[in-house]
């Protein structure tokens, strides 16, 4: 299976928000499929998901500096392990 070979999703994301210099939280990052496509645009990217297996796949990848600053964490959207006002952008990815 191949999904979104034309990268429409990340282009829509990039058309909708400017990520340069931003601290980004992606809720529902899964295996990092979308994260990988935009992470280089941001200053720091943190991905969270409740699925441990998906997160293992995400962590096994090779990532750029923005992910090295942020990383991946197992967390639910209803209990985010971050302090108040930690991010300029939150991406709710296929999770509502």
């Amino acid at each position: 299976m191949i999904s979104d070979p034309e990268h429409r999703e990340v282009r829509a994301l990039q058309d909708t928000v400017a990520l340069a210099g931003k601290r980004v939280l992606e809720i529902g990052c899964g295996d990092g499929r979308l994260t990988r496509q935009y992470s280089a645009d941001a200053w720091r990217v943190t991905g969270v998901d409740i699925d441990a297996a998906e997160l293992r796949t995400a962590r096994a990848g090779t990532w750029d500096a923005s992910i090295e600053r942020g990383g991946f964490a197992r967390a639910s959207a209803t209990g985010l392990p971050f302090q108040r006002s930690s991010f300029e952008v939150v991406i709710y990815s296929w999770s509502f």
Binding site: T16, V17, L34, A77, S85, F87, V90, I91, Y92, S93
Partner: peptide
Amino acid sequence: ALSEVHRVLQDNGQLLDLR
């Protein structure tokens, strides 16, 4: 969940809902 997003976002921060 939205309350949590509101808490961790700084004022004028942006929430993107992609689904």
